[in-house]
Design a protein around this nucleic acid. Structure first.
Lengths: 155, 155
DNA sequence: ACGAATTAATTGCGGGTGCAACCATAATAT
DNA sequence: ATATTATGGTTGCACCCGCAATTAATTCGT
């Protein structure tokens, strides 16, 4: 049967990819919009602070933080500059490795976080939980993780 | 039972969201890397040209193109500037609406496209088709489309 | 123990993005 | 018909990002 051996990627693959781009764009756009409007805070800022809070003692090495927040080290360094400027984060030099630096949430940062997380959660709930059943969510997660963890390098 | 009525978004929702961010970042990084290395072309450029090729007569109004490529009108305008500079695209003013402009693929653009699409497809096949079964791909697409098309505005 | 290779973080730079303001044209209302 | 409003596209601006080079400190090899 299959008569049209299209050299192009299968339409279902391209379609899924475009859906991923679209969903990502819409989610980030909505998150950034609401966070900026209500709290004067970008999603990247909140994401950094969320990872800090989730870490032991609310502090993390800058390199680790960069990986978690999906940013280059330079981008993260500047993001931390900005958060320090707002008084939400502090740099603490690492006692055991004098090259290293920790980022630490300040008390003010914890408050800002607590206040902003509600908007963050509201948007995610609205756009994910309301659209997808529980089983779908974990199935989605499983598939995307397989894509994320693909370790092949193509030449 | 459920004793911990966590005020935070359910961990499965946040997990799925992070997986989406991760998969998106990895896919785009790989795509941009390979396209730049092999063809001196960004993913955004290729995406614009793909949408042009798929359109009737290989031309599209700039506004439509911006929506398809998930770019603001200003970003698209500059992207077209760049593509025109490379000789891959032409601006054609719209005869029926003197405000409007079409973007049109040139012959050279079609060649560049044909050459670059193979890399595009290779990366997508490698990262999506190899990781996900056929049924999974369409299920993934369905879920992400529901997220993308969510039309609610929160305040 | 000492020089070479590695790692952590920062900075200059070029480039890409969105928003808001702008101009030109088209559609709508009165 | 004319004034108002809306739309298409471009530009100034501020911001954010990654790469490559830099500096400082640590680790590895011999």
């Amino acid at each position: 049967m299959q008569e049209c051996a299209n050299s192009r990627v299968q339409t279902t693959t391209l379609g899924a990819f475009r859906s991923l781009l679209g969903a990502h764009a819409r989610l980030l756009w909505q998150l950034d919009l609401q966070l900026n409007a209500r709290h004067g805070l970008s999603f990247a800022d909140l994401e950094v602070m969320l990872h800090l809070e989730a870490a032991e003692g609310g502090e993390l090495r800058l390199s680790e933080l960069a990986q978690l927040a999906l940013l280059s080290r330079s981008a993260l360094s500047r993001r931390v500059d900005s958060l320090v400027g707002q008084g939400w984060v502090l740099r603490r030099s690492c006692p055991t490795d004098r090259r290293g630096t920790f980022a630490v949430l300040t008390e003010s940062g914890r408050e800002k976080l607590k206040e902003s997380v509600s908007t963050h959660d509201e948007v995610l709930t609205e756009m994910l939980t309301r659209q997808l059943a529980d089983g779908e969510l974990s199935s989605l997660r499983g598939m995307l993780d397989r894509v994320r963890e693909d370790q092949r390098q193509l030449s």
